[in-house]
């Protein structure tokens, strides 16, 4: 129960953090992919059910708070969630380098999906150079954000009291 509350609360706070972080003009105006990092964290550390809940909650918050139609995160986050969940038993999910690589690839894939959807639906103009800048930028930001999110969530989860058969201890 506490873990579920932490899941919803953590992603909610993550959305607020992403909302208030300034955009980075040097990376095409994108923001650090905090919500994508949360989706990846839960995909790497949870059962399929936990992963789906986290992924859809993060995507709903992302697209709900963004302008335009629902879509970029609702498609992108499940995709990176599924991929990360599939490989989680074959990689060191708590290793720093692994998290950096998964964070970078996940953020780049989510950005690619957003570029694709915005271009197909005509909501945003497509410029190759700008798209490339955003892809590279999201990769670099994902490299930093996922390890930070993982570290924070590990600390918070370790602070939750565990149930060990004799009630709460």
């Amino acid at each position: 129960m506490m873990a579920r509350i932490l899941l919803f609360g953590g992603i909610f706070v993550g959305a607020l953090v992403q909302l208030f972080l300034p955009p980075l003009p040097v990376f095409g105006g994108i923001k650090p992919p905090v919500l994508a990092a949360f989706a990846l964290y839960y995909a790497l550390h949870r059962s399929p059910r936990g992963m789906w809940i986290a992924v859809f909650w993060a995507a709903l918050l992302h697209d709900g708070l963004d302008l335009g139609g629902f879509g970029p995160a609702l498609v992108g986050f499940p995709l990176i969630g599924i991929l990360a969940h599939r490989v989680r038993l074959e990689i060191f999910v708590d290793g720093l380098v692994t998290q950096m690589m998964v964070g970078a690839l996940g953020a780049m894939l989510a950005m690619f999906v957003a570029i694709l959807l915005y271009t197909i639906t005509g909501q945003r103009p497509f410029h190759f150079g700008y798209a490339l800048l955003r892809m590279v930028g999201s990769g670099l930001l994902g490299l930093v954000v996922l390890p930070l999110v993982s570290w924070t969530m590990k600390k918070l989860e370790s602070a939750i009291p565990k149930r060990r058969g004799y009630g709460w201890q």
Binding site: I30, D66, L67
Partner: peptide
């Protein structure tokens, strides 16, 4: 109250 969440829109 806030800026755009994704940076995709200038809003």
């Amino acid at each position: 109250t806030s800026r755009n969440i994704s940076g995709w829109w200038n809003s």
